Simulated assay, not measured.
Amino acid sequence: MKQGHLDKHLRRMKGHYSRKREVLLTEINKRMGDRLSVQGISAGLHVVLSFSSSSLDEAELVKRAAAAGVRVYPSAPYRLVNGNKPPSILVGFGGLSPDQIRQGIRLLSEAWFSP
């Protein structure tokens, strides 16, 4: 640590994950931008996709994603108060390559919005 190795590593990883986040946001905006909003984009290795209106609940969105081969998570277990909220889905990207992120968002878009 005295030699600055940790700081160097953290700077490199910050840039690495920042590029992945940019790929994720670009793909979401391109394929689903008018159908949902993205929260939590400034930090972390995940984002929350919030649906303004959807005929599908969180369980159905997760089920369709899984059927398409993409793992996502409902946000309801992390809320303090559930109430009657529109569905929102937790999407991680830290362990994925940019190509996997692109493919995953394409598959999610097809699973959730294709007739």
Results as ranks from 00 to 15, higher is better:
M1E: 10
M1N: 05
M1A: 14
K2P: 00
Q3E: 09
G4K: 04
L6P: 01
D7A: 14
K8P: 00
K8V: 05
H9V: 15
R11K: 15
R12T: 14
R12M: 15
M13P: 00
M13H: 00
H16L: 15
R19L: 12
K20Q: 12
R21G: 12
L24A: 04
L24E: 01
L25T: 06
L25M: 14
L25R: 08
I28M: 06
N29F: 04
N29V: 03
N29E: 13
K30I: 11
R31Y: 09
R31T: 13
M32A: 11
G33A: 03
G33C: 08
D34K: 13
D34V: 11
D34W: 03
D34H: 09
R35V: 08
R35F: 07
R35N: 05
S37Y: 01
V38S: 08
V38P: 01
Q39R: 06
Q39W: 06
G40P: 04
G40C: 10
I41P: 00
S42W: 03
A43Q: 11
A43S: 12
L49M: 11
L49G: 03
L49D: 02
F51G: 02
F51A: 03
S53Q: 14
S53D: 12
S54I: 13
L56E: 04
L56V: 07
D57H: 02
E58D: 08
E58N: 09
V62F: 00
V62T: 02
K63F: 10
K63M: 12
K63T: 11
K63N: 09
R64S: 06
R64T: 04
A67R: 12
A67E: 12
V70H: 03
V72H: 05
V72E: 07
V72T: 09
P74Y: 04
P74V: 12
V81S: 10
V81R: 11
V81P: 01
N82E: 13
N82A: 14
N84P: 01
K85F: 08
K85P: 04
P86A: 15
P86E: 09
L90A: 00
G92A: 15
G94A: 14
G95V: 13
L96K: 15
D99G: 06
D99A: 15
Q100G: 08
Q100V: 13
R102W: 03
Q103P: 00
Q103K: 09
Q103I: 10
Q103F: 07
Q103W: 06
G104I: 00
I105W: 01
R106I: 07
L108Q: 01
S109E: 06
S109G: 13
E110M: 11
A111E: 00
S114T: 14
P115Q: 08
P115A: 13
